[in-house]
Design a binder for these strands. Structure first.
Lengths: 137, 137
DNA sequence: CTAATTGCAAAAATTTTGCAGGACT
DNA sequence: AGTCCTGCAAAATTTTTGCAATTAG
């Protein structure tokens, strides 16, 4: 991992344990929106002793620092996204894939919410992705 | 429940058991976006023997018929919505309230999704609702 | 050295499933 | 009558928690 990134993480007050670095590295530039289990499985080869508790703890810490966002599209399972620029998502109901959508949309804050504090918003498109469509034929 | 509604439900091929009617009645015009447990608790007084299995079974049947939608905003817990006209939602991160947003927004289908089948989309606004804001002061 | 983090195991929370008996049409 | 539905209990899935041992700063 790059020196500048390491310094950035340290500057946030994060203790940089090997496990955390591995999780951060796995999430960086990862656009698959992994679940906690995906992360756990991906890192298990290099960290056979790592536990789910560490994955969840780390994700929660990163979420509080704004480095990771939770995506709730799949019902039971949470998905995690380290791409934190504002963007939207497509969710394939068939293969459960989540695709980043970066096209801008002009959204105005609804009148109904004028007294609310809005921290963010996102559009979720639900449907069947192109790969799954082909397979259905 | 109105006769016309009963006929409508029957016309969908639903067996109208007392439990189902109670769940349907509870959900009709209910804009609180209840969880399965909320529904269970609300009906328990009248149906002390009803089980979670029945709640979940019924919700799944209604979802397949398009009468109920799942809302995934809260992470672990699913919320259910029987107001099926296209609309958006606000989620209060503090009190977990979900508010229907009916203001229209002009959304175009993004270029990235031109080969996908889009069944629906929705905007979710995240923030703090007006009631919670007042309490924070 | 100190506070934060890890790993383990157990618990919690939510949803799903199998099956026998019962109810709706 | 036949199929679908209910209720119970157990299981499955995902996430959270308590605590002792370890580690980063």
């Amino acid at each position: 991992m790059k020196e500048t990134k390491l310094r950035f993480y340290k500057s946030l007050g994060l203790k940089l344990t090997p496990q955390r670095l591995a999780i951060l590295e796995y999430l960086e530039d990862n656009r698959t929106h992994p679940s906690a289990e995906d992360i756990y499985n991906a890192l298990k080869p290099n960290f056979p002793s790592m536990s789910f508790a560490t994955v969840y703890n780390t994700l929660e810490v990163l979420r509080k620092k704004g480095l990771v966002k939770e995506i709730n599209v799949e019902g039971v399972r949470k998905r995690f996204d380290a791409f934190t620029h504002p963007h939207n998502h497509f969710f394939c109901k068939n293969c459960k894939k989540v695709i980043d959508i970066e096209s801008k949309q002009d959204i105005t804050i609804p009148e109904e919410l004028k007294d609310c504090e809005i921290n963010e918003y996102q559009i979720i498109y639900f449907g069947i992705c192109s790969e799954c469509r082909k397979k259905q034929d």
